[in-house]
């Protein structure tokens, strides 16, 4: 049991790390939101499962936390993305970069 719990904790931490790397590497804010949202959502869920295996008495509170994360996380990301689009932030694309001649990667 201890081993499975540790496995979930490590996987959760790894996905959160990928999310952080994604924040640095992605070319524009929309892609950053994507990397951040997805990786951190599953990362936190894995962490919660790991904790639930270590401390089974906490399962009910962890379940509530997990469901709230699942509902609010994508909602927040969508709202931020919507605000950005309304504010006129253009999504990055390969075509527009090559047209402008600014391919600096």
């Amino acid at each position: 049991m201890r081993l499975i719990a540790d496995l979930f904790l490590v996987v959760g931490a790894a996905f959160t790390l990928f999310g952080a790397i994604g924040l640095i590497r992605m070319p524009d804010v929309y892609n950053r939101i994507q990397a951040g949202t997805k990786a951190v959502t599953l990362g936190s869920l894995c962490l919660l499962i790991g904790i639930a295996l270590l401390y089974p008495a906490w399962w009910s509170k962890l379940l509530v936390i997990g469901v709230l994360i699942l509902i609010t996380n994508p909602l927040g990301s969508s709202t931020i993305a919507r605000a950005l689009l309304k504010a006129g932030v253009k999504p990055w694309s390969k075509a527009s970069v090559s047209q402008a001649g600014e391919a600096d990667r």
Binding site: M26, P27, N31, A35, A39, P91, K94
Partner: peptide, 24 residues
Amino acid sequence: ALVQANLDMARRVLSPSLPLQPAV
């Protein structure tokens, strides 16, 4: 789909060429 999304995103983030074709 959630697990797929994460594996997919991890692959994109970690691959050196950063394979992206973004569009709205």
